[in-house]
Computed example of a mutant assay.
Amino acid sequence: MTSIAQDTRPALETPAAVPAARRNRMTPGRWVVWALLVCGALVMAFPVYWILVTAVTPGGQSQSGEFYLWPSEPTLANFAEAFESQPVGRWILNSVVIAGIGTAITVIVALMAGYAFAKFSFRGRGVLFGAFLVTIVVPAQVTLVPSFLVVVDLRLVDTIWAVILPRAGDAIAVFIARQFMLKIPDALLEAARIDGAGELTIFRRIVLPMSGPLVGVLVILAFMGKWNDFLWPLVTLQGTENLTLPVALSSMQSSGIFDNPWGPIMAIAFLSLLPLLVVFLVFQRTFVQGIASTGLK
């Protein structure tokens, strides 16, 4: 019995168990890393908190010379003033429609183009993909005038399609989609072709179910870009009621309606952050997986 006990005691402490326990300990180095991460998170979150504080401060923060982290008498009067004096509801609806439809079109185009570049061999594929990559480094101001002339010829000025269609294709989204789909096994697609499946069926039943993380990345990046877009909507949207939130916020500052515009402006700015937060929380897990799968840094 003694020999059996002596034989079993070392088995309780396997070589793999000891390093695992050590890895779970909070060493001084880990405490430093966690402290830095928390400090970084606080620095990144403070501007959002400051927007909220200004939004619930009577008259806004700028009207008082004092600095405080929370007002003594918080109020929603700034929100009410903004909604009563400006068509804020229409602006929110415009932004939601433009960002929603634009994101859907961008994601669909990126998925199909990325699949074609990754899994099809055709003449000029490398040249065409290189042209896509070149457009990434071209500033938006360079194509502003030609794009606007096309929109004028199509008679789309001051409509949501003037904002959506010229930005439907995104070279960065196509690049991310191609990099992800390069890792889909070709043997799996060939097996489906041997079984008689068409290319559309393969794309819909095999490629798309395997591209969940990719879709999360594309949705977050596309929605964020279209929701925050300022320059192009500023050029193409002319009527007050047809503006998007970023453009409308700048017009509120120069409208002259408010005695102190910073309270209402920060109130609407805080509301404009909520859709971005919701979209990120919904696709957060797939976003991290997609970034890791595409090898982006």
Results as ranks from 00 to 15, higher is better:
residue 150 V to S: 08
residue 21 A to C: 00
residue 204 R to Q: 09
residue 131 A to H: 00
residue 21 A to V: 08
residue 297 K to F: 08
residue 234 L to Y: 09
residue 122 F to T: 07
residue 227 W to G: 09
residue 267 A to S: 14
residue 73 E to K: 10
residue 1 M to A: 14
residue 140 A to H: 08
residue 250 S to R: 13
residue 226 K to E: 09
residue 241 E to I: 09
residue 125 R to N: 10
residue 20 A to V: 12
residue 229 D to F: 04
residue 282 V to T: 09
residue 8 T to F: 14
residue 86 Q to P: 00
residue 50 W to A: 15
residue 186 D to K: 13
residue 80 A to H: 08
residue 100 G to C: 07
residue 36 L to I: 14
residue 156 L to W: 12
residue 146 P to I: 11
residue 266 M to Q: 07
residue 154 L to V: 10
residue 230 F to E: 04
residue 4 I to F: 08
residue 184 I to Q: 04
residue 120 F to Q: 13
residue 24 N to K: 13
residue 51 I to S: 10
residue 62 S to P: 00
residue 28 P to W: 12
residue 242 N to L: 10
residue 140 A to T: 13
residue 123 R to Q: 11
residue 154 L to C: 12
residue 188 L to M: 15
residue 194 I to A: 09
residue 187 A to H: 07
residue 264 P to G: 10
residue 222 A to M: 11
residue 262 W to R: 04
residue 206 I to P: 00
residue 190 E to D: 15
residue 242 N to I: 11
residue 264 P to W: 06
residue 47 P to W: 07
residue 126 G to T: 14
residue 103 T to W: 03
residue 169 G to S: 14
residue 194 I to C: 04
residue 87 P to Y: 08
residue 42 L to W: 06
residue 225 G to H: 02
residue 153 D to N: 13
residue 19 P to Y: 05
residue 273 L to M: 15
residue 47 P to E: 09
residue 85 S to W: 00
residue 268 I to G: 02
residue 203 F to T: 07
residue 223 F to N: 01
residue 266 M to Y: 00
residue 213 P to E: 02
residue 235 V to D: 01
residue 293 S to F: 04
residue 222 A to F: 00
residue 131 A to E: 02
residue 143 T to K: 05
residue 187 A to D: 13
residue 143 T to V: 15
residue 229 D to T: 02
residue 176 I to N: 01
residue 53 V to I: 12
residue 11 A to C: 05
residue 255 S to H: 09
residue 80 A to R: 10
residue 183 K to D: 14
residue 235 V to W: 02
residue 91 W to I: 11
residue 221 L to D: 00
residue 176 I to K: 00
residue 13 E to I: 15
residue 199 E to R: 14
residue 56 V to D: 04
residue 6 Q to D: 11
residue 43 V to P: 03
residue 234 L to C: 01
residue 86 Q to D: 05
residue 61 Q to P: 00
residue 211 S to I: 11
residue 191 A to H: 02
residue 62 S to D: 08
residue 44 M to C: 13
residue 80 A to C: 01
residue 189 L to D: 04
residue 143 T to Q: 05
residue 50 W to H: 07
residue 278 V to G: 04
residue 260 N to Q: 10
residue 214 L to Y: 03
residue 177 A to C: 06
residue 258 F to K: 02
residue 12 L to M: 11
residue 204 R to N: 10
residue 254 S to T: 15
residue 128 L to M: 14
residue 44 M to D: 01
residue 113 A to S: 15
residue 127 V to N: 00
residue 252 M to Q: 04
residue 46 F to Q: 07
residue 95 S to Q: 06
residue 120 F to D: 06
residue 35 A to M: 13
residue 77 A to I: 08
residue 45 A to C: 12
residue 271 L to R: 03
residue 44 M to N: 05
residue 224 M to Y: 06
residue 154 L to W: 12
residue 81 E to T: 14
residue 14 T to K: 11
residue 65 G to K: 07
residue 194 I to S: 02
residue 157 V to H: 07
residue 57 T to F: 03
residue 175 F to V: 10
residue 210 M to L: 15
residue 98 I to G: 05
residue 234 L to E: 05
residue 198 G to T: 11
residue 242 N to A: 15
residue 107 V to H: 02
residue 68 Y to F: 15
residue 84 E to W: 03
residue 25 R to E: 12
residue 257 I to Y: 08
residue 233 P to Y: 04
residue 228 N to E: 04
residue 173 A to H: 02
residue 248 A to D: 09
